[in-house]
């Protein structure tokens, strides 16, 4: 899973990328049941998303990703903080012609056909009557559902629903597309289709905000990532940052290393040195890899393998979640 991020790279666009989503100190309480007890699920989160990027909002189940997205979509009202999208306060509704949204596990009117469904969303999005038919055919084609356009959604598979759901989100050609767990519950082929669709939309210049807990997908499509744990943002960074979080080092496996060379290596690479005799593993930072290889080859050792070693998002994620739990075992606290 080391495929590089495709699509356009917003980092290379210019000095100051425009922040199209800004979230400042957002806090949300839920009242489970009817009591007065409030449970805080978002603890003043702050982050921003730049124009043109695929932004991954990542976290374990129950972290508050969907809640954050619902606040951004104006579906629930936050207790504290504010957020703007394309410079508009999220309480407004007119700017929503520039954004699209695919909810988590969406349900759609299953008595409508694919075409009727898209026509309905095109109408409420303000697509003119003249533009609608062509727009809908293009969308059906884009998401690979032309053949199913006259079929009722009741007969759609989960993957087809997810694709018509994305079509619904982009029916009015928005600048930003918000996707909540777009790949969960799909088989590998379905996931690849969605992934390709996301990359294609991004290549067309759309900013993508994506909630997910599937890390391999994040590594493949996201430019930047924020890790949310129990309602708090614990890490924000570029995809390149976590790929090279510890200097892009490598694990080198050697065999038939002469004893004097072993000693020299132990001196030079002490902490990353493991094994003995016929098989020795050395972990080195990228900078020192040439030194190690020169020493080994000059000394007559055999290089079995060199594995570039990256901190995966997964290990970063696991570490972050662990740290967060160690720091704050009651992150989801009862208040008031």
């Amino acid at each position: 899973m080391t495929e590089t991020v495709k699509g356009n790279d917003p980092g290379e666009r210019g000095a100051q990328p425009e922040e199209v989503i800004r979230v400042e100190g957002l806090a949300k309480d839920f009242r489970p049941g009817f009591g007065l007890v409030r449970k805080r699920v978002l603890h003043g989160i702050t982050f921003s998303v730049r124009r043109g990027e695929v932004f991954g909002f990542v976290g374990p189940n129950g972290a508050g990703k969907t809640t954050t997205l619902k606040v951004l979509m104006g579906l629930i009202h936050p207790q504290e903080g504010r957020a703007t999208i394309l410079g508009h306060d999220i309480r407004e509704s007119a700017f929503r012609r520039h954004i699209g949204f695919l909810p988590e596990n969406p349900y759609f009117y299953d008595y409508l056909t694919g075409r009727e469904f898209l026509d309905f969303y095109a109408r409420v999005s303000g697509v003119t009557k003249a533009d609608r038919p062509a727009r809908i055919e293009r969308l059906l084609d884009d998401v690979g559902l032309t053949h199913a356009g006259s079929e009722r959604l009741r007969g759609y598979s989960k993957g087809m629903l997810q694709r018509i759901g994305i079509a619904q989100a982009i029916v009015h050609d928005p600048e930003i597309v918000f996707l909540d767990e777009p790949m969960s519950g799909l088989d590998p082929i379905g996931r690849k289709e969605i992934r390709d669709l996301i990359l294609r939309l991004n290549a067309e210049g759309k900013t993508i905000f994506m909630n997910t807990h599937i890390l391999s997908d994040v590594e493949m499509v996201c430019h930047r990532v924020a890790i949310l744990v129990k309602g708090r943002i614990r890490w924000v960074g570029g995809a390149a940052d976590f790929r090279e979080a510890d200097g892009g080092g490598a694990d080198v496996v050697l065999s038939r290393v002469p004893p004097d060379i072993v000693a020299a290596m132990e001196d030079a690479f002490g902490t990353g040195f493991r094994g003995q005799g016929d098989r020795i593993e050395v972990r080195v930072p990228e900078k020192r890899l040439p030194d190690l290889l020169r020493l080994s080859l000059d000394g007559g050792a055999e290089v079995v393998s060199v594995t570039p070693h990256r901190q995966s998002l997964e290990s970063l994620f696991v570490d972050t979640v662990h740290d967060a739990e160690a720091l704050d075992p009651t992150a989801v606290e009862e208040s008031r």
Binding site: M73, R96, R97, F101, P103, P106, Y107, S125, G126
Partner: peptide
């Protein structure tokens, strides 16, 4: 949750 997609539009 069909209301989610409707209200995310300029409605």
């Amino acid at each position: 949750r069909t209301i989610y997609t409707i209200l995310s539009k300029p409605v």
